[in-house]
Design a protein around this nucleic acid. Sequence first.
DNA 1: CTGGATCCCCTTGGATACTG
DNA 2: CAGTATCCAAGGGGATCCAG
Lengths: 150, 150
Amino acid sequence: MEDGTFESPGNCRYTEAGFDVKNWDTREDCEVRQILDRIADKWSLLVIALLDQCSMRFTELRREIDGISQRMLARTLRHLERDGLVKRTVHPVVPPRVDYELTPLGADLHSTIKALVTWTEEHRAQIAAARTAYDARTSADENAPAAATR
Amino acid sequence: MEDGTFESPGNCRYTEAGFDVKNWDTREDCEVRQILDRIADKWSLLVIALLDQCSMRFTELRREIDGISQRMLARTLRHLERDGLVKRTVHPVVPPRVDYELTPLGADLHSTIKALVTWTEEHRAQIAAARTAYDARTSADENAPAAATR
DNA sequence: CTGGATCCCCTTGGATACTG
DNA sequence: CAGTATCCAAGGGGATCCAG
């Protein structure tokens, strides 16, 4: 009976505080995945952060972000606009002028995200230490494969 | 002078609450991007959420997640372990048994992320409405291209 | 100035097969 | 059971050209 096959406990509950874990990140169905993909894509968060300070035009954002392609900036802004996070205002002047600003929803999301940013700032040292330790452990295992893993 | 070229204001400050926006998401340098990429990848968040309930073994996670490949589960777990978010325990028994559990750091991160999840839950209706409105507006523009944008 | 359209590369991630 | 190694498809994202 010491073979590790204990039969799965199955007695742990996945519901907590009223929502089901399996239900808020099951890829296609829920919006959590959608929003997460949105804010985690390469540029959205940075755009939101910049627009939270003040409204900006397309080229201002482009110049400010440094490294983004116009294709990606346009795409990102369209996504954010579609989700109601950013408001786009077109001024009908000779050289087109378009201003982007955060909607209240976008500003609200940004303030929520900042908690995560703050967390990361506060724990960056722990994460870096964990990585260093892991890498050291890993390369050590290569040299001493016979040692017990623990 | 009505050509829209106002010369960029340049008078808006990007520093707020002590940190520089340009400095916490400039791709390569900061850990914010790293952590964000980690929790936003396809499976990490779900793994964290499940492990927050109780520790689980590899196959339990695999069976529970439904849709994940063993390659991705192994990869995800190794990443999480490297970042110090998940602890891996190998039991030297005949059929190998490996338990995964959240570290205090991982549990802490999860509780932070849950704020974002909660936000999404609360605003899913607004987002859905914004998308519907955007799509309607977009397709309407195709039918009435001559109308002023505002 | 503000994008859309195209081409192309590279990463992410799935499927499968193979070890210990 | 718990992975690793290999192959391959889909999509993200950059560069460039073009239009309103």
